[in-house]
Amino acid sequence: MTSPEGRRHRDTHEELDAIDFTALFAAQIHDLKNLLFLLLNSLDETLNNRCAGSEISEDAASRLALLKYNGQLINDKLIQMLSLFRFAQGPYVIDIAYRPVEELIEEVVAEAKPLLGARSITISSDVETVLCGFFDRDLAAGVLNNAIHNALQCAKSEIRLSACAENGFLAIRVEDDGDGFPQEILDNGGSMKSLDLSGGKTGLGLYFSSVCARLHSNKGQTGRIALSNGGSLGGAVFTLLLP
């Protein structure tokens, strides 16, 4: 290993060794989110210009919506990775405040609407306007966005969000009229077992959701997610349960 190439190789290796990759990745994710913000905003702008009368065909518009949807999926992944990284670094403190649930639902629905594009899917929400609860707004929104984006992939014509108080828990549901969760996800969804890093789908979203739910605790009770099929629309039912 005394040839110049060998030495150069070793130097590069030492140099790379010195990099703190966990910190580097976190910082890069941070930058990626900034770039995504610019990307999604210019997409919005293009979509809005269309409404204002400029010429974009229906076809182009629905392709833009699809582009935006995929952008949102990237953002979901980044949020999940960055959050799990922060949780792991610890100590991680969540910001639990008393808030109207309707506000949260309104926001995630507003985020989801532009993603529909030309698809004939309706998103409706059914929340008692007066329901309030204790939760971390950003974590809850991250979980619900993920659930909605999953539902968008499976739904045939409808997605429904609902929230209610149930046995001392705040229950927020995302239901669709698709084919429902496969048995394997019903069995393992949200657990470490579902994290299959070799397969195409990692199950990271559900795992992230279940970690976020567990971070909410109150008087000995801990939050969780529940997955089932059926529900009011006959498809998949994702439930976030917060104490």
Binding site: P100, T129, V130, L131, C132, G133, A165, L170, N218, K219
Partner: peptide
């Protein structure tokens, strides 16, 4: 108790 606080409030319409 906690139940009161997961309960109803006046309308939140904006």
């Amino acid at each position: 108790n906690a139940e009161d606080f997961q309960a109803r409030t006046s309308s939140t319409s904006n």
